[in-house]
Amino acid sequence: MTAVSARALHKIYEGQRSVLALDNVSLEIPEGQFTSILGPSGCGKSTFLRCIAGLEEISDGSLHVRGKEVNGPPDNIGMVFQRDALLDWRTIERNIMLPIEFAKKSTQAAAPSMAKLLKLTGLADFGDRYPRELSGGMRQRAAICRALIDSPALLLMDEPFGALDALTRDQMNVELQRIWLEIRNTVIFVTHGISESVFLADKVAVFSPRPGRILEVIDIDLPRPRKLAIRESAEFGAYTQHIRRLFEGMGLIDESAEVE
């Protein structure tokens, strides 16, 4: 079954000057794959993700999540935001349990899977801490735990590492891959980092600048688990070079201005 199926999807923000955010986007995302949505800032890639999450209404075309037409947030999805969106007054453990509480399920029954997630993300010793006591990377890991606690079939990540420094970001990429290799659910990962998108994904959908269109969908055929060093390999370089060419073709990267 396909996890997400978008056909001729359009998104227009109505207003005095209507803005076309997504123009004829068609994409099939198979279940159990890690898909990166890559594009420059403001290309509508986050809008696409928010449409899948049911947070934005589509203007035209069709959008199905696991066979059902999207009308409001679909069941059984997890979402990670750019900023962690943790609740400051709850401990890390109680933050992670929030989806369980909202779903009116037993937090006791979910305790073992929380312990497993905390261990998997290296937060085992921080469950009783408050978000303010944690670093940015640790907070985002907690937000990932929260998104995973109710075993979502579909995990949506909206530039989750965008606010982190480069080193922490590398670390989080490695950890996310490790977590995903354990869980193997469907992940849609929005980013503007070329190398990040290739490193993590089975498939990279490259978006053009506004109005957002899909330029190309690239299958990434690199063995897992991938180490950070893979980024220096020729195969990896071929993928990133190909994507960079696409962006150059759109006039996004222009080296001719570099005279000094």
Binding site: L55, M79, A85, A103
Partner: peptide
């Protein structure tokens, strides 16, 4: 915050929750 509002919608909890 806006992203916490979004989180609430995605989690589909009751209004009271």
């Amino acid at each position: 915050p806006a992203d916490v509002m979004d989180l609430g919608r995605v989690l589909k909890g009751s209004r009271a929750d």
